[in-house]
């Protein structure tokens, strides 16, 4: 493997990892507050189609991104209303949300199939920094959405572990009864972070339809929402690890294709399998001895003050 190839693989790992990263960060927010949302795939799809529709109508990818954020948030609001407001089963509601989002996005996207986007997020090299060998093209040779995701990761980490609202949110996810006793509004907290999670999933979808592809095709997420859900466990609900994990997931795909292009004979099926093996290994290690490292204590459980 030569140098150019290594740069190209790492660069592709970042691009391929970014949509997963956005969605995983969103899911971390929701799950940290105790709400398991399996509707990531659906929210990403609705985000992708909304972003594309708005961009086609207005000509501005930034307005498109805004549309995707709003659409993702609205989708998550359905989940929040069902699971937090009405205490429905979170798994069932999340799955329904994915099915709903798949159908809805296909329906909304009908008029813009085959329509080229008037404007998309293009690569903007960061001056000076992009000239650093290796790191330059890999880290600083991307579009604005990638740079936003860079900033988002430390910001979320700081918010989670170093601020009071972040502490409240984690308390709600760990032990809602105790948080309630402390005077934190459990319902509102869960509403807010579930919707915030949807907003980020929408951003992940917008990255696919406005920067990566950039076009709208039905079902274009092709399972990335589910990878994001797995990644959250892989990352132990930590934004920093999620960053590394999403580039790993993205990189393994890019690696598998590039190894073939160079002509080495490693079965591509084997390489596509690797990220999932990592996830299973992490699960095994982290649950040894009956402990669930990092998983919020009340994840997936509806909270009712009367206790039933």
């Amino acid at each position: 493997m030569d140098w150019v190839l290594a740069v190209s693989i790492c660069q592709a790992a970042v691009t391929a990892g970014t949509p997963i990263l956005f969605a995983a960060l969103g899911e971390i927010l929701a799950e940290r507050a105790g709400v398991l949302n399996l509707g990531v795939e659906g929210m990403m799809l609705v985000g992708a189609v909304s972003g594309f529709l708005v961009t086609v109508r207005t000509g501005s990818p930034w307005l498109g991104l805004l549309g995707a954020l709003v659409a993702g948030g609205l989708m998550a609001l359905i989940h929040a209303a069902l699971c937090v407001g009405l205490r429905a089963n979170q798994v069932v509601s999340g799955l329904a949300l994915t099915l709903f989002g798949t159908g809805l996005s296909g329906y909304l996207g009908k008029p813009v199939i085959g329509v080229p986007a008037p404007s998309t997020f293009r690569t903007v090299e960061v001056p000076v920094l992009a000239d650093i060998p290796f790191l330059g093209p890999v880290v600083f040779g991307h579009d604005y959405l990638v740079y936003i995701s860079y900033l988002l990761v430390p910001a979320l980490w700081f918010f989670l572990y170093r601020t009071r609202p972040g502490l409240h949110m984690r308390a709600v996810g760990e032990n809602p009864a105790a948080a309630d006793a402390m005077g934190i509004n459990v319902g509102w907290t869960r509403y807010i972070y579930t919707v915030a999670g949807g907003v980020l999933a929408g951003a992940g979808g917008a990255y696919l339809s406005l920067a990566y592809a950039p076009t709208w095709l039905e079902n274009m997420t092709a399972g990335r929402g589910w990878i994001a859900v797995a990644l959250v466990i892989f990352a132990g609900w930590n934004p920093l690890v999620a960053l590394a994990g999403s580039y790993l997931f993205g990189g393994v795909d890019a690696l598998g294709l590039r190894i073939q292009a160079v002509g080495t004979v490693v079965p591509s099926f084997f390489l596509s399998m690797l990220p999932y093996i990592f996830t299973i290994l992490v699960l095994l290690v982290s649950t040894r001895g009956g402990r669930r490292l990092g998983a919020p204590g009340a994840l997936g459980l509806a909270y009712d003050r009367e206790g039933h």
């Binding site: 150019v4 190209s8 696919l208 092709a222 294709l257 590039r258 292009a261 160079v262 591509s268």
Partner: peptide, 25 residues
Amino acid sequence: VKVVWTNTWYDPAKEKEAAKSLLAV
């Protein structure tokens, strides 16, 4: 003619990535 298998019929992003890997060589 250099061949890269994607092991999928339908994944626009992955197909694009496969093409990029061919362009890179």
